[in-house]
Nucleic acid binder design. Structure first.
Lengths: 230, 230, 230, 230
DNA sequence: CATGAATGAGAGTTCATTCAT
DNA sequence: AATGAATGAACTCTCATTCAT
């Protein structure tokens, strides 16, 4: 299984933001580029701090230290800045920097590395993921966006599962795609609970990261009936 | 394992809406009760149709065929009607009406029945669940609400898992609570995808309900290493 | 000088509330009378507590423990209850209960007794006076009302002054009416400051009542050049 | 006595509007300054015409010929515009332009000039004073404001009285502060009656300005037992 | 390009008054 | 006469978007 669980964020080359790609032409001047960059940076900061809905455009321009009107030089509305923010952040979210696995043939080791990388990436971008979840509930365009990326992730894992089934290492009774949906979903829910909700409520001990990795990996492996290794 | 996966909705007797219970005094007259009921019904309809955010209070009163001001006789704001809507719907969501299981000692059969009941209830109340997910992203009070109910569900399943572990029927290596979080989450994600997102996008064949039940059940059973039955 | 400074409140027999006398017919039944009385009493309490403007009709009916609609059985609006409240209170305000003066021919003694009685009455009805001042600024009908009563007071004192002038005991250079306006006004301002504003602000030592009496009396006597008695 | 009765309006250098100074940043552009000025001017006009309570914010913006929303660029609410109106008017009210007195050592002449100047200023700003009285009954912040200014006025006159007492020209039996309260109050009541109430009711001959000045001056002088000059 | 004031539609909310029961 | 729910006009305030400078 050579896929990673971390690619829920992957765009797979295909235009990832189809509905959001109506971006304006990039600024012609250096000053313009600077202003635009400041706006995107400010937008991310404010979005993450106040949430998408509670963010007013003037909050963004204030944070970016530019005039309210300047916003419209680069973006048509709030959705468009958000698209720009996500586009820019994608880069980081796509390269979890997975550690080399000693034995690439050991499915369990590969799976564990993959889950660890995914969870690390999620944690690193937790605020942005929280934002994405929020926006997906509020702006249909972003719901599609979220779904597409999840699908890519799911499809890749499905291929991994099918591969293992072909090699006789995984339970052949389950449909690879459906199983991938379930198991990938399981991991992403855990990530959401741990890194998004876990942060919001101070009470309760936060989950131990390594325990999280080992638990989801074990459950995943069991669920597919990886050969016993104990 | 005699718990059901369907009780994510269960309040376990305890006041389930603590933060939302600032309800006004119930109407003193029949007429008042009728109007209030009409408002709650209208609210549910409009919320489910337009979403929480896009719903204006006048949309609700218009739907309920009463004056704008009448709304405030019964509710202080949009949040309060929503609380009333959820409170009223809870009843139905709490009694999935799980079918009798032939052999209550067969963990697999119990699990399957439990999952089927849960998924049926989810499907039946899909629009409301969609609403709850949306609102949880937008109003902190409801986030707490959602979390609490999920917790109840998780804790119950955790008890079931611990029980099976004690009986030697389930993998003892995993922490029951963490495993319950993961597996319960897996089921609810599947439900969300199938019944909430599945409805919104017309493309693609909808998942077969029975296949869904059998897949999540099989994965769950495998994940906990239920004894082989094939 | 046999007039009293206390009669700013006096209605002098003449219909004192001309513009406010459009009162409805008195209730026919006993129950009606009771309800009406409860409303007036409640109105006074709430008016004095919350001020005229911040009082809603429902506050009054709530305080009177009757239904909102019942209000209109007895009064057309807020102004009318207020008129009723004032009408009822007038009685008390009109009888300052001035102590007998030993020597009714000693202008100074008479003046002092008169001022003391006036200030006592003002203090006793301070909340109502505060209310009246507020209402006079807000409802023209009551401005007239306040003016008329002040006029009565002023005219009476003016007669007293003219009398003393005739007896050669008071400065003949000043117009009696104008002087009365000034001096009566002086006393009422002091009363307002001491008993209305003085209560609202906790800081500062409240004025000593007797010092107040002696000061205004002395200034008044001096202003009219009462014969020296020191 | 070198103080003036006219300084009830005086702020004495100290920040006179402490509680009202939560003003927004002044407009950055000329256009902004123009709009703000137009709003303040319009507010004063409408307030004086309709009274504080009956003034709707849209009345002000309509009068200023700008959009309703523009109001909030400069003021948070009705109170704030009023503060701005008073702040602007203060200037004029603080410089009664008292005529030079021939003989500054003649207490009577000084007193008369002072009273004339005060009454002239009051008359000039009568509508604003009416407004202030109204508002003081309705908004606690402005009650404080009114009190503070009256206090400044009173304290100054009290110093004048004490001074005269020290020079043996005024009755030493009265407390200077209390006497000042009474006499300053006497003048301001007369001013209120003459210029505020006098205008509202058309009936009755308006008081002759000079007679007003000479009467209050004479009474004041007598009250303090200025040495005889007749 | 940047600026920041101007715009105005639209939402929530209050409460005096009416009226069916 | 009493009740208390229903009504709806009126008002404040927000903020995305435009536009003159």
């Amino acid at each position: 299984m050579n896929t990673t669980a971390a690619d829920e964020m992957d765009g797979e080359k295909a235009p990832p933001m189809a509905p959001l790609s109506h971006l304006r032409e990039p600024p012609a001047t250096k000053r313009g580029a600077r202003t635009r960059a400041a706006l995107v940076k400010a937008a991310r900061k404010v979005f993450e701090r106040d949430g998408y809905l509670d963010t007013r455009l003037t909050d963004i321009t204030k944070e970016a230290q530019c005039a309210a009107g300047s916003f419209y030089t680069y973006f048509a509305n709030k959705e468009e800045v958000l698209a720009a923010v996500l586009l820019e952040a994608q880069e980081d979210m796509l390269h979890p920097g997975m550690a080399r696995v000693e034995d690439a043939d050991d499915p369990y080791a590969v799976l564990e590395a993959s889950n660890r990388a995914y969870l690390q990436a999620y944690k690193r971008n937790a605020k942005l993921m929280a934002l994405l979840e929020q926006v997906a509930q509020v702006e249909p365009e972003f719901r599609t966006f979220r779904s597409r990326r999840a699908d890519a992730f799911i499809r890749r894992n499905a291929r991994g599962i099918a591969d293992l089934q072909a090699r006789g290492v995984a339970d052949r009774e389950v449909d690879p795609l459906l199983a991938s949906r379930a198991l990938s979903g399981m991991v992403s829910v855990m990530a959401y609970n741990a890194f998004v909700l876990g942060e919001q409520q101070e009470e309760g001990a936060p989950v131990d990261f390594e325990e999280l990795v080992s638990t989801v990996t074990r459950l995943w492996a069991n669920a597919l009936r990886f050969p016993d290794q104990s």
